[in-house]
Nucleic acid binder design. Structure first.
Length: 421
RNA sequence: GUGGGUGUAGCUCAGUUGGUUAGAGCACCUGGUUGUGGCCCAGGAGGUCGUGGGUUCAAAUCCCAUCACUCACCCCA
């Protein structure tokens, strides 16, 4: 019989790593709450149409990476490949915009894309992110980027990270620019790669994203998006730059930063890390002023970002943030079957007082239990054997100092309470 | 979907031009100590050598296929 293994591109998060996840999660929650953002949790699967309509039919995500199946009643369902769409759906469905003109939300959870796994890329992966609905002003963009900045800095990742910033303009600007770009490219179309030729039809801006030397060379003299900004686009970006400077958040303007989802407008940004290999985008986001409307809500501007938690953890891995929290405080050594009721009872008393207490459910020898106690990292051991039971006493051992004494069973919890004060 | 690299004990890895019963370190278990951990010493358990086929008197070793992992392309977090 074959061993059943985890599915390709998924990972078990084992105890030796789960504390790192918890730490990252708590940083995210902390920073978000300091900005007044509240958590939203949405289902892990949705109707397929939600993603094809918001992310874009022609994007890689929708066209070839989604886990999609037909439910028994015939509706097409999809494991969420990203979270903004779900959050927007929920925002509309529960009329959050009606409750207050600004909604500040954050989320974390698993996402699914059927790609070939590599470093920093999995089929089930985890993101955290934030979304702010209601403001079209650049100070909202600045706040979102500031949240990202704070989290990165709490994670100790600022030094190896750069913020790439761009505006892809709003509707009219992008139409004009798209046409100009197509006019520029079309005489050279046959020199482009197959994918770029496809993009020429579907999403010409994405061609700017190319890494091919030859195509980059070809694009050297291509029209620049910045020349097509409306006045509004222009002042929006300039204000944002000012705000970032005011907060001492360094950035690089990168007019080739386009991003692969269709719903973005104006501001787009990406934090890239030098610690990650090929998949170096730790966090990416942008403004999506048209998305709520596309999904059937009242026109509402929005902006947000999503960050890859696995990528954060890879980048954080080479820093030594000691996990000082002991797993166990007290190891309860019970030497006699008759002592088990007392063991369970006293252990619970200690737990009620906040101590982490374990005992040996294998009824092993004292030697084994103490060895296990040592390994567990417990600072103290309590020893209950026949002699102790006869005296209503218990052995107390300081495993670090190697000292031992006998105390009354009735005094155990008091004894430990005094010890920690 | 395409290409490269790697598969030997729970983990990290040795393994000679193909040659007897496949090894080490760490981890684990037992004992040295009738009820005392760590350090030390002695012993023990643990392997379809990824899988299937082929070549050969003989395969962990050579050949083919396949699977898994991994890195990269692509794309993205």
């Amino acid at each position: 019989m074959n061993q059943i293994r985890n599915i390709k591109g998924t990972h078990d998060i084992l105890p030796e790593n789960s504390h790192k996840w918890q730490e990252l999660e708590s940083i995210v929650k902390n920073v978000c709450s300091r900005f007044g953002y509240q958590e939203i949790r949405t289902p892990i699967f949705e109707e397929t149409g939600l993603f094809s309509r918001s992310v874009g039919e022609e994007t890689d995500i929708v066209s070839k990476e989604m886990y999609t199946w037909e439910d028994r009643d015939g509706t097409s369902l999809t494991l969420r490949p990203e979270l903004t769409a779900s959050v927007v759906r929920s925002f509309i469905q529960h009329n959050l915009g009606g409750q207050s003109p600004i909604q500040r939300l954050f989320y974390m959870g698993p996402l699914f894309r059927r790609e070939r796994p590599q470093k920093g890329r999995q089929r089930q992966f985890h993101q955290f992110g934030v979304e702010a609905f209601g403001s079209a002003n650049p100070e909202q963009d600045a706040e979102i980027i500031a949240i990202a900045w704070h989290i990165l800095s709490q994670c100790g990742l600022i030094e190896n990270t750069v913020l790439n910033l761009n505006s892809i303009g709003s509707g009219e600007c992008r139409n004009a620019y798209r046409n100009a770009l197509k006019d520029y490219i079309s005489p050279h179309l046959d020199q482009l790669s197959e994918t770029s030729q496809k993009r020429f039809i579907n999403n010409p801006l994405r061609i700017l994203d190319t890494k091919s030397e030859r195509e980059l060379d070809l694009l050297k003299d291509a029209p620049k998006i910045s020349n097509y900004y409306t006045e509004d686009d222009d002042t929006h970006l300039e204000s944002l730059k000012n705000f970032l400077e005011a907060m001492n958040i360094p950035f690089t303007i990168n007019h080739r930063l386009v991003r692969g989802l269709d719903y973005y407008t104006k501001t787009v940004f990406e934090f890239n890390s030098s610690q990650l290999g090929a998949q170096d985008a730790m966090l990416g986001g942008g403004r999506y002023d048209g998305l709520v409307e596309v999904l059937g809500g009242r026109p509402t501007p929005g902006i947000g970002f999503a960050a890859g938690m696995e990528r954060f953890l890879i980048a954080m891995d080479d820093q030594d943030r000691g996990n000082n929290d002991p797993i166990v405080d007290i190891y309860f050594v019970c030497l006699d079957e008759k002592g088990l009721p007392r063991t369970l009872q006293l252990s619970n008393e200690l737990r009620n007082n906040g101590f982490k207490v374990i005992f040996d459910p294998l009824r092993r020898s004292m030697k084994s239990q103490l060895r296990d106690a040592n390994r567990s990292g417990a600072r103290f051991a309590l020893i209950l054997g026949e002699t102790e039971m006869n005296d209503n006493a218990i052995g107390f051992k300081d495993l670090k100092q190697g000292t031992q004494k006998t105390i009354a069973q009735s005094e155990v919890t008091n004894f430990f309470d005094n010890l920690t004060n």
